[in-house]
Simulated assay, not measured.
Amino acid sequence: MYFPQYRPRRLRANSTFRNMIAETKLDTNDLVYPLFVVEGEDIKREVKSMPGVYQLSLEHLVKEVEEVYSMGIKAVLLFGIPEHKDAVGTGAYSDDGIVQLAVKKIKEKRPEITVITDVCLCEFTDHGHCGLVGKNGEILNDPTLDLLAQTALSHAMAGADMVAPSDMMDGRVRAIRDVLDANSFEQLPIMAYSAKYASAFYGPFRDAAQSAPQFGDRRTYQMDNANTLEAIRETELDIAEGADIVMVKPALSYLDIIKTIKQEFNYPVAAYNVSGEYSMIKAAAQNGWIDEEAVVLEKITSMRRAGADIIITYHAKTIANILQK
C-alpha cells in the first residue's frame, strides 16, 4: 500500500543507520568452509583453477582449521582425496580412510569446531562416478546405498558432527538415517544435497577433488537445471527420509530455487556457493576488473536474502575479514 503523504528516508548519509535497518545480515556463524584433505606429508598444493584453495595433508589441514576457527568460522566441510582408487570406492568407508583420519585429527586439536563430512563415492572411485557402475555403464542406485551408509557410519565413528550425502542416489538419506540410528547415532544430523543440479559450475571442484567422471556425465542422477518442481519433490523426499538440513547446489544461478525451497518447506536451507562461482570472481579480481570484496559480499548477501540459512563457500575467510572491519 502506498501512502502519498509518507516519504521514507533512505538514510544515505549514515552507514551506521543503514546497517541498523538492513533486512539481511551476514555473520561468520552462517558460513561453512570447504577443505580438501589428501594422503601424504607436508603437502599444501594450490588448486590451479581455484586460487587460494589448497589440497592439504593432515598437518596443514589442522593448521588451516585452527586459522579459520580463530577468524570466527565455526564449521568446515571435508572432502577426501585418496592415493588409491578402485571401482567400489573402498577408501570412502575404510576406518583408516583419509576423511576418517582427518576428522580424528581435527577433533584432537580443535574439538570445538563443527566437522561436516561429504558422503559420496566419486573422489574414491577410479571411474569418478558417485555410485557403483554396471556392466553397461549404468549407475546402480540401490547397491550404492549400502556403501553410502557405511561411509556415513565410518565418519560418525571417527567423530564427525554432521554428514552430508552429495551423491544424489534415490533413498540415500533413509539408508544413512537407518544405519546411524541402529548404531546409536540418532542425534547426528544429516545435511542432504537435496536440489543438486547437473552444472557447468563444478569444473574447478573436479580439479580440487580429482573426481571428474572418466566416462559420460552425471546427468542421469543430478538434476536438470530447467526444473523447479523436481527440486521440490527431491527436497520433500529427503525431509521425509530424515534430513535435518536441505541444500541447493549451485547457489548463484539458483537463487529462485533457494527461495522456493525455503518458502515451500520453512526448513533449514544450505546454499553451496560452488567452485565455478568462486573462480570467476577470483579471475576477474586478479585482472582488476572488479572489487573482489564488494562482489563477494554482494553475492553472499543475495544467497542469505533468498532464504539460505547456511552458506558453504570458499570465500569464507574473505567474508570473515570483511566482517571484522
Results as ranks from 00 to 15, higher is better:
Y254L: 08
K25N: 10
D86C: 01
T90L: 00
E83Q: 00
L77N: 03
Y193T: 10
N321W: 00
I261E: 12
F265L: 11
Q187M: 02
A212P: 00
K74T: 11
L121H: 05
I257P: 03
A240T: 14
E234H: 15
D170W: 05
P268A: 09
S15I: 15
R9H: 12
A175K: 06
R45H: 10
K105A: 15
N14Q: 11
L31A: 01
L147F: 14
L255V: 14
Q263M: 08
S57D: 09
S57W: 10
R206C: 08
G131N: 02
F17T: 09
S70N: 12
M1V: 12
T301C: 12
P204H: 08
L61T: 03
A149R: 09
R9S: 13
A92K: 03
P213N: 06
K109Y: 07
Y6F: 12
V246G: 04
V103E: 06
D146M: 02
K44W: 02
M168C: 15
S94R: 04
V37L: 07
D170I: 13
I258L: 15
G91H: 00
D42N: 13
A283M: 11
P111N: 11
L101F: 00
I261H: 13
T151N: 13
T313L: 05
R18H: 09
L147Q: 02
E112W: 12
K282P: 09
D178A: 14
I232S: 12
